[in-house]
């Protein structure tokens, strides 16, 4: 009697697709990482296949997913994988935070392709899966090509993505507050002073040059460490502080013609004295459109934030 178990033919389809993609990847991309691809096959790809294997369009959907993986590795967008052990844990503990996985995602696209998609694609109606894959890729790749602060911020909020089907709404809700233009600056009292602790960006962070990359986003360069940059998102309460390995964007400072005079542990803003307790000697400062002044000290990880009335 001839054995023709669906499982066997299904495994063949899986293997064939893996081999096809591996061969194409090696032929096309200088960045092709075969070991990474094999790891992904054992983890994400296997999980994806297992979750959709009973669908009538599984071959097309799986092939589409593997195309995303192929292009992702080839373009060096995907640089890491999760193990099958990780996925088993995540299936049981869906709210597990990235920090407990011991992984730092490099981009929102990588997060979606390696974590979200294999875990949740089967929850999407089968006929919508291909369109969703196209959407996720285009959104993810375009975010990568934007100024760095956008990708950084979106990635920091990635764990709030409810499902992939709601990705557009998630992105709108995430970006909208950042795109809110600031209120016109008055540079008049009352002034409110608060402290931003640079060690919350990086343990050894020492604030250096600062510039505004968007109405509500500040980029702070570390004074000593190459490749260390802090992002301060000042529209959020409290401010969101993020670490990045590259500058967050070009300076978009408007020229603020405000008279500033620094003294020991204080500053005069348009002749109004504002105490900056424990500032000492100031190192750098930034006048932001929207009426904020950020000041760093010569010998401190802190940034003094002065918000004008």
């Amino acid at each position: 009697m001839q054995k023709n178990t669906p499982q066997t033919s299904s495994d063949t389809v899986f293997e064939q697709e893996i081999n096809r993609v591996k061969e194409l990847g090696q032929k096309q991309y200088a960045h092709w990482d075969n070991e990474l691809f094999i790891d992904i096959c054992k983890g994400a790809a296997q999980l994806c296949w297992n979750s959709i294997r009973k669908q009538s369009n599984r071959d097309k959907v799986f092939a589409a997913y593997m195309e995303l993986i192929r292009e992702g590795i080839g373009c060096a967008y995907i640089t890491q994988s999760l193990s099958s052990g990780h996925y088993k844990y995540l299936i049981k503990n869906q709210k597990t935070l990235n920090k407990f996985l011991g992984i730092t995602w490099k981009s929102f696209l990588e997060y979606c392709l390696i974590k979200e998609m294999p875990l949740t694609i089967s929850q999407v109606p089968a006929q919508q899966q291909l369109d969703l894959m196209v959407k996720v890729w285009n959104l993810g790749e375009n975010i990568r090509q934007e100024t760095p602060w956008k990708g950084l911020y979106i990635l920091s909020r990635a764990e709030e993505l409810p499902t992939l089907t709601k990705i557009e709404k998630f992105l709108v809700d995430t970006m909208a507050p950042l795109l809110r233009p600031p209120a016109p600056a008055r540079w008049q009292p009352p002034f409110r002073v608060s402290i931003i602790d640079g060690s919350n960006i990086h343990d050894d962070f020492l604030p250096g040059d600062m510039h505004q990359v968007a109405p509500s986003v500040i980029c702070v360069h570390d004074r000593r460490l190459a490749g260390v940059y802090g992002g301060i998102f000042i529209n959020n309460e409290p401010n969101t502080l993020l670490l990045h390995n590259q500058c967050l964007g070009h300076s978009q400072n408007d020229d603020c013609n405000i008279a500033l005079e620094f003294e020991h542990s204080s500053v005069k803003i348009q002749s109004h004295r504002v105490d900056l307790t424990r500032l000492g000697e100031h190192h750098s400062h930034l006048l932001c459109s929207g009426g904020q002044l950020l000041v760093s000290a010569v010998d401190s990880q802190r940034i003094w934030q002065v918000v004008t009335g």
Binding site: K60, A64, L68, V134, L139, E141, I143, L171, A176, L179
Partner: peptide
Amino acid sequence: NAIALIQLWLHGRAQLDDNGGL
């Protein structure tokens, strides 16, 4: 503005061909 930005991001290199392949 955020909606317009995301709409822009939806247009990219990935697409489905006539056979439904990516």
